[in-house]
Design a protein around this nucleic acid. Sequence first.
DNA 1: CGACTCACG
DNA 2: ACGTACGTGAGTCGC
Length: 895
Amino acid sequence: MGNDRQKVLLIDGNSIVYRAFFAMPPLTNSSGLHTNAVFGFTTMLLKVMEEEKPTHLLVAFDAGKVTFRHEGYGEYKGGRQKTPPELSEQFPLLKELLSSFSIAQFELGGYEADDIIGTLSRMAEEKDIETVVVSGDKDMLQLASEKVTVLLTRKGVSEVERYSPEAVGERYGLTPQQIIDLKGLMGDASDNIPGIPGVGEKTALKLLAEYGTVENVLAHMGEIKGKLGENVRAHEEDARMSKRLATIFREVPLERTLDELRWSGYDAAELAAALRKLEFKSLIERLDLSAAAVGAADADAAGAAAGQAAYETVWVAGAADWQALNEALPQAEALLVESHGDNPHQGEGIGLGIAAEGCIFVVPYAALASEEAKPLRDWLADEQAAKTGYDLHRAELVLARSGIALRGLAFDVQLAAYLLDPTEADPSLVGLLQRHGLPVIAADEAVFGKGAKFRVPEDEALAAHLAAKTDAIRRLAAPLAEELDKAGMRTLYYELEQPLSVILAGMEKQGISVRAEALEELGKEFQVGIERTMAEIYRLAGCEFNIGSTRQLGEVLFDKLGLPVIKKTKTGYSTDAEVLEKLEPYHEIVRLILHYRTLTKLQSTYIEGLLKEIRPEDGKIHTYYRQTIAATGRLSSQYPNLQNIPIRLEEGRQIRKAFVPSEEGWLILAADYSQIELRVLAHISGDEGLKEAFRNEMDVHTKTAMDVFGVTADQVDSNMRRQAKAVNFGIVYGISDYGLSQNLNITRKEAAAFIDQYFGAFPGVRRYMDDIVAQAKQDGYVTTLLERRRYLPDIRASNFNLRSFAERTAMNTPIQGTAADIIKLAMVRMDETLKSRGLRSRMLLQVHDELVFEVPPEELEMMKELVPKVMAEAFPLDVPLKADVNFGVNWYEAK
DNA sequence: CGACTCACG
DNA sequence: ACGTACGTGAGTCGC
């Protein structure tokens, strides 16, 4: 390859900016200027530049509102949402930044960015120059050719998919040219291109497979049968026009030459100034521009900083490798444990990565058991040896199954990232690197494949990937730790979440004993009920059908039996429990269907589901608590979920009888917070009436009924209390009259009246609701008592639905999240207490407001006192916290 | 793989 | 006027 290598990179500016805007969390500089789209765009830009190393570079923009496409079709791009102002204001910023990068930008009145790109790529092609096009718009695939590669962004902006003509063929079964035909047939709602009604992607692909082009489909439209044929014939002209609209115009009179796109680097001082203005500190660092304001930095810094791996990868195999690793261990900066599958309680280990002293050591998992690995195993188990990793909770479980301990947790990148943004859709290392402007690595999916296609690649490729991940952990740790500090979440992280992760792993390893025979016996009873109910349903329906199919069930209930349709879903009749309850008076079959649903749910999810999860080695179920999923800070539980074991209905509650202590004579002890969310509400709202109610140990729903209905305690009947309870739930969820009316089956007006009454009686609560929404609008996020944070990007949305949802979330998250903080804190305290007192009792489960233990009989009296005390004192509020405790020979009896 | 349904707090 | 309660995980159906 000589110096004359040329490569043109053409970027669809508008498309990428839009994508970036919606993919990135809101981000403003200190003067309140929105910068998220610019940041996302720049991250993408740097990544693609680094990967493609173009010699020529251009960002094309759409110009003006009206293009030549509107001449033939006035409604083109009609009905589009207006560009949000938060985005509009970023275009000038981006254009300015691009000039600081010395990157060419074009726009031309009457044409869109894709036409400019189409024209330039044609010009490059004619000169036999390799071209790469970047866009978020699938239409661009029509440009793919031997010389032109199209990169489509997906999920966010920095992850791209590469399309050669072959790749287009693999993905769609079409040639690039046929992409135009595809859109001609199916249209495009976002551009208001009609296409043919009733033709979506699938039908369009089928037609193209048969006829090849829109023109040929139309030439043969007489032979297309059925409704489809009718539609094609009726919309012939629409199809032709849609194809014209979708065709990228490659003859734009540009009066520019490719030479004008040549990129020869940027002025470091100028770029540093531009980035500083935007407050993109991470990018300044990434491009190594920190010093640039003072001295003139190398204009080629972009390539260098974004460039090659700064470490040596060592695939640990021979004695010399082991020795090098052992010597490096004391300086280890990052640890990776890679294993198969989603469930850390199963699936073999794949390998370890350890970053130390400029090297990344990759240890194949099988070698971990070898004699040479003894020092490594000791290091892993050494409490004093600090580990920085990504999801070390999972790592601990994986290693534990090989008899290897993992201790000495210093920092977990995944856990930190979760606290920084618990709603982040992509918490993978790749996503984190992107958002921090660090060099991006391959996604796991790309290396391993996914689902059934999961394969561990050859040693070399595996080593490279594990090394890249380990290095990513090393690079991310410091910036994330700093961000935690800045956001005031240092304590939350180090005092609560990180210690909790170790406690959770302990509970999961411990597991809970479940008696298979008890489940099987119960399952037999359920089976009898299921069969009996099924037979009766068939008799009443007058036919046999699959009751589990909502479609077939809908046909029987509404078409055959003629019951009134209460509610519809996207795909047909709704048959959910709410609907069926309303239908009960019409036909006795309805009650049976409800019963059938209850029994089959219990049978498949809880009998069969749980039986599959009992491990034969120890007769226990080991769930996996996810600490980085729930947006509010709660835990979640998987494989299986032990946080939704039935309790409300007696039939299902029986399941709990199978959950027993793991040792002879021990007992199950369960303690749950009483009304923790409403107590938290009393505290954070400061409402005097609500606080008073809890201080006087009143029944809070009765108290609410008294105030809402204006009666005395002895006048509150069970119905009033029930309604008051629903109001209290509504308050916690972020009240709306509609939601309450649905729940109580009353009119919206009546619900609104309840809410009014409630707020009249509890003015502090109303003030809280107003204030928290206002605060969320101002800050863009809400926090819990322990400074847990949740961003609410939609709180300023102009769309009513999105905004309302965000407002309810703003009301609910501090309540639910603070309750989550408190029980997590109680778990940490409880763990310390058990250890410091040398108790044998074990904490086994957490169910949001409940902790479940197994206790030896001699500790029962002490635990009955201790557990509720620790829970109540976990975090002092303005009202007392209360936990009730129960015990028994199984979980059912501990009620 | 998405839609629907339902178990829990 | 808008049309939803907050937060999860899992099983089944049907494309």
